[in-house]
Computed example of a mutant assay.
Amino acid sequence: MRPLTEDDVRASFVNASPDELRIVALPTDFLLADWDHLDFFAWRDPRTRGRGYVIAEIDGDVRGVVLRSADGTSRARSAMCDLCHTTQPADQVTLFTARKAGEAGEHGDSVGRYICADLSCHENVRLAMPLAPNEVRASVDRRIDGTRRRTEAFVERVVETAGSRR
């Protein structure tokens, strides 16, 4: 992923209102990000409970989405992240929703995915061994590529009815 500035990050969000953009809090280690090794950039808002962000580079254009995490907990014992396909204890996977961009979002349309609660998918797929015994033992490169593709597809789904905002 190409290096991003704070202005790049704020300008990338396709589903954020001006008020939401004003309160975006970058992660504390933003200035230390190793952009050459990131397939996408995701973090939980350190100041606003229940908010997260995902930014992906799609066809050379940087697109970001604001996420909201669901309140409550699951009764399941384990759950699988829809992005990195790792199986974890259920309390470590959360339903995140993103309001769609443009008019669809203004009408309340949203997209939801079960994602690692700490948005650490980028790191999880780089583990040499699967996190759970029932996970498919794919090569690390295949897991990284799959996670990147699923993340980009998620971001594109948020944008799809809005056309190009940038």
Rank of each mutant, 00 (worst) to 15 (best):
D34M: 13
F41G: 05
W35G: 02
T151C: 12
H85Y: 14
V125A: 01
S78N: 14
I58R: 08
S69T: 13
A56V: 05
T151G: 05
V158W: 03
S69A: 12
D82I: 01
R47A: 11
Q88M: 13
R51C: 01
A101H: 03
F30C: 07
H85F: 14
A132L: 09
C116T: 15
Y53L: 02
R126E: 09
G50N: 02
A25Q: 12
T161A: 15
W35P: 01
I144T: 08
C84W: 01
T147Q: 07
S120P: 00
V140S: 04
R44Y: 03
I58D: 05
C121S: 05
E135H: 10
Q92G: 12
L127E: 14
L131Q: 15
R47D: 14
C116P: 12
L131M: 15
E160V: 11
H122L: 09
G112W: 01
G112V: 06
L67D: 00
F30W: 07
T87P: 09
R137V: 10
E123Y: 05
A128P: 05
E135F: 07
A56R: 00
V62G: 03
E160F: 08
D39V: 09
T147I: 05
G60F: 01
F154C: 01
L32V: 06
T86E: 00
R77N: 14
L38Y: 12
D109W: 12
F41M: 11
H85T: 09
R149P: 00
T48W: 13
A33T: 14
L83R: 01
H85M: 12
P46H: 02
D118N: 14
H37I: 00
F40P: 04
R49N: 10
L26F: 11
E152L: 08
F40A: 10
L38E: 09
A56L: 00
D91C: 00
R51E: 03
A33N: 08
D118L: 14
A98R: 04
D34L: 14
R51H: 07
R51A: 04
H85A: 12
G50A: 02
V54Y: 04
P130Y: 04
C84S: 07
G102L: 01
M80R: 13
T73Y: 00
H85I: 10
C81L: 03
S74N: 05
D82S: 11
R143Y: 03
S120H: 01
P133G: 04
A76I: 07
H85E: 14
D34N: 15
K100P: 03
P46C: 00
I115Y: 06
H107V: 08
A25F: 05
R47L: 12
E103Q: 15
V66Y: 09
